[in-house]
Design a protein around this nucleic acid. Structure first.
Ligand SMILES: [Mn+2]
Ligand SMILES: [Mn+2]
Ligand SMILES: [Mn+2]
Ligand SMILES: [Mn+2]
Lengths: 222, 222
DNA sequence: ACTAAAAATTTGTTTAGCCTAATAAAATTT
DNA sequence: AAATTTTATTAGGCTAAACAAATTTTTAGT
């Protein structure tokens, strides 16, 4: 049974959306919004995917990936993230330039290719945005990072990933001079607007709005 | 105007077929055979491509690429061959394993990507099968090689490319121990079946059938 | 419990890309 | 020059993937 590029994109969307919330059912409208297709189109595809046993679908009740569907979705995510590492590490693209190209590359179909690419890149565990790369068996490091704005006390953290992948946000961070792996020391938390004053790498102090802070994922520095 | 993956494949087919012969018109049946689609399907597509000014098409008279069509086709060929170099040089695929994957990768759409891939690979001039890689402006080294079986005198040659790209032929050459760049000394030409006895790299003598010799491209050794 | 709003599905079209069968045009043979 | 064969086109139909409009089901508000 072959899975089309479009079907792969639907499976990935369902996977991504189910991870945002509580792992429960994903709704037609969520998928519709995410993929920028009309709800009627989504319903059609849900029937097709259910037919292929890639999702469990009860009309009006939303969908969940089957094991098979989940495996497929994770493989697409794995490819997407490996290619992003390739583009940044080997071709010197910036982290805000790679997503659209990876959206295409993630559909290239060759197990041998993924395997060799993985080795060539040194079996990376995270992509350029800090997102974990599933291994060949579909296992992925659960990330224990939290958004910066949920840290209620001052302290020392490491910037490990982003919640928001838009080009403008990534460029904003680059403008500030913030990169994955940088240390972040919360110096002030302003009560009235929940903005933060943060020192990056012990040198340069910056103000982060709550919006920005909510999209920056940090771990506690050991 | 966007050009679909399928349209790209038709343009590439027309380009390839026109190069085989005398650069003249390509026929519906040739395309049909090459792409393994029915002639009626090809006629449909020819109308679409003509509509888009990618080919000049006169019913019953065959087709020729327009300048625009040719540019597009050459770009696809460039991408195909660059990706093949990547797969062999960087991911250590064998030369008989890369074609199918390159058939997919050649449709990835990003000028910046091709440009950077080209630089990353060291701006290669030839792909793993000895085929010339068009440069960013679509110029390509005309190859002055001839098939081994057209060399009528004994002498010293260099193996620079293949005429036949099938997995089985490439594996056959690998089995013989023949690689691009090897020197070939014609020791004997057998009149009755036009087979050749050839010494590879001054060490190992092999018999080549005329069929094999016709698919091996050589240049005169300077 | 009833009604209005929101969410999802069904119905009917469209386009790209493929097919087979029927027909027309061109080339070849007699 | 006709007849036959080969090549190509037209006509009609199919499926995947999209849409808009109409309808149904579920949820939320009173
Ligand atoms: Mn991405
Ligand atoms: Mn990413
Ligand atoms: Mn190839
Ligand atoms: Mn090649």
């Amino acid at each position: 049974m072959t899975i089309s590029l479009t079907e792969e994109n639907y499976l990935k969307a369902i996977y991504t959306l189910s991870r945002l919330g509580d792992e429960s059912e994903v709704t037609t409208n969520e998928i519709s919004k995410h993929l920028k297709n009309k709800a009627a189109t989504v319903t059609d595809m849900l029937k097709r995917l259910a037919e292929k046993k890639l999702i469990n679908y009860i009309p009006y009740q939303g969908v969940k990936l089957t094991e098979k569907g989940k495996r497929t979705a994770i493989k697409v995510v794995r490819k997407h993230r490996l290619w992003e590492v390739f583009l940044v590490d080997k071709l010197n693209f910036k982290w805000d330039e790679v997503h659209e190209i990876a959206e295409q590359l993630e559909h290239i179909n060759s197990d041998e290719l993924i395997q060799r690419l993985d080795v060539f890149l040194g079996k990376p565990k995270f992509d350029p945005h800090g997102d974990p790369i599933p291994d060949a068996n579909g296992q992925l490091n659960t990330i224990k990072a939290l958004p910066l704005n949920q840290r209620k006390s001052k302290g020392n953290f490491i910037f490990v990933g982003v919640n928001e992948h838009s080009k403008s946000f990534l460029q904003h961070l680059t403008g500030i001079g913030l990169k994955i792996g940088d240390s972040l020391l919360i110096e002030e938390i302003n009560e009235f607007d929940n903005s933060f004053k943060v020192k990056i790498n012990k040198t340069n102090s910056q103000f982060f709005s709550n919006k920005v802070a909510s999209n920056i994922l940090v771990e506690i520095k050991k």
